[in-house]
Write a protein that binds this DNA or RNA. Structure first.
Lengths: 216, 216
DNA sequence: GTAATGTTTTACCAACCGGTCAAATTATCA
DNA sequence: TGATAATTTGACCGGTTGGTAAAACATTAC
């Protein structure tokens, strides 16, 4: 029988898992660089080293490939925020959140750019995820931060904008990598820039959220 | 004689200025939303309210349109950084830089997204500008910040990463607008979010760069 | 007014796009 | 081994893409 992959309910063969893996890897490359509309199936097939019809045997449409990729990546992308622990020490929780986000920017820049492209272009394929699971998770963690502030453990601040600030400053090093390297110049474009960024951002956020003597 | 616009050296007619304006306005809309490769001439022509060949009479290629747009926008985009004044008070200079960048994110989100798209996709059309004028300007302002730190006016910090942090946190509200709105929820998605962001970011950066008693 | 120039449109093209089909090839397993 | 199912490919299709040619139309200069 000839059934396209998507129509089957169970994963069957070893070869299927391998090829799907191979395709999603290539798709990540292409979608992250050109966005959904700017990417072509031919291009992905080329990167994956297989023919276009073969690729379409495993994913029936370009949309299906993109969706599979989003589903797989979104979950792991939110892990650092999930680890944010209400019981921990506020300063070290925030520091390690920043560090984890920076590590992801360094080690998984394509995943970051995939989302950046998607959101930049109006999030046409993931708005449900943003309004649902993402918002829920942020709401939960924002409450944690608000409690910390109320308990006098950190300065009073808008927890949502704090989270936005951590997201933007860390993901910047993945999404705007070219610009960062160009501005730093060749001599400072080694991996050391992530160390420097970590040092700076920890200083900024720790001091920025500190309780000053006699205030707050 | 029939010469495409680009071949002429002088701007001639009133109609030319109007139409080029009209086209670039439409192109900004489309390129900012879909990136270069994801945009089509037909789409731009549609938004501009003219036929495709007519549009190609003023700009001979899609690339020419994009380039004209970049050239026009890049300059004004860097204005806030140029205003950064070495003679001014460090804290208020940084605050007003943040405020200006936030105002641009609010008032010119398409311009921000145009660059974000371009850089995300590897800056294939503007890398010269990044390595040249942009780097030069940042180098100059980084030196100003370094001098402030050395003079004990602000905390010691890496000036380049400080600038990156200001860029990313402010532009976030333009580039990731959909996400920001979705996470904040409907009731907080009014224009007030820019006020809240300004308050939070000023607090973060001012406190984060403060000189602590007895240190630095 | 009319001739020259500037502008717009219609019709078109070759290349590319997402996707289909049927046949060929390969893997699986009794 | 052979039958059956899974995988891969080349040829192809209708629609879209960036861009062109030439003629129709409008504007300006004299």
């Amino acid at each position: 029988m000839v059934l396209p992959r998507a129509a089957r309910t169970q994963r069957r063969t070893r070869i299927q898992e391998e090829k799907e893996e191979q395709i999603l890897e290539a798709a990540l490359d292409v979608f992250a660089t050109h966005g959904f509309r700017g990417s072509t199936i031919d291009q992905i097939a080329d990167v994956a080293g297989m023919s276009k019809p073969n690729l379409l045997y495993y994913f029936r449409t370009k949309e299906a490939m993109h969706r599979a990729l989003i589903d797989r990546v979104l979950d792991s992308w939110l892990d650092p925020l999930r680890e944010f622990d209400a019981e921990g020490n506020p300063v070290s929780e925030i520091c390690s959140y920043i560090r984890r986000k920076l590590e992801m920017a360094r080690d998984f820049p394509r995943e970051s750019r995939l989302f950046a492209n998607e959101i930049l272009q109006g999030a046409p394929h993931i708005e449900d995820e943003l309004k649902g699971p993402l918002k829920a998770l942020v709401d939960e963690k924002a409450e944690v931060i608000r409690a910390w502030a109320k308990a006098g453990k950190i300065a009073k601040c808008d927890p949502y904008h704090l989270i936005f600030a951590i997201w933007s400053t860390t993901q910047h090093y993945a999404d705007f990598d070219v610009q960062v390297r160009d501005v730093l110049g060749e001599e400072r474009s080694g991996e050391g820039r992530f160390e420097d960024a970590a040092r700076f951002l920890e200083q900024l956020f720790v001091k920025g959220l500190e309780i000053k003597n006699g205030s707050d």
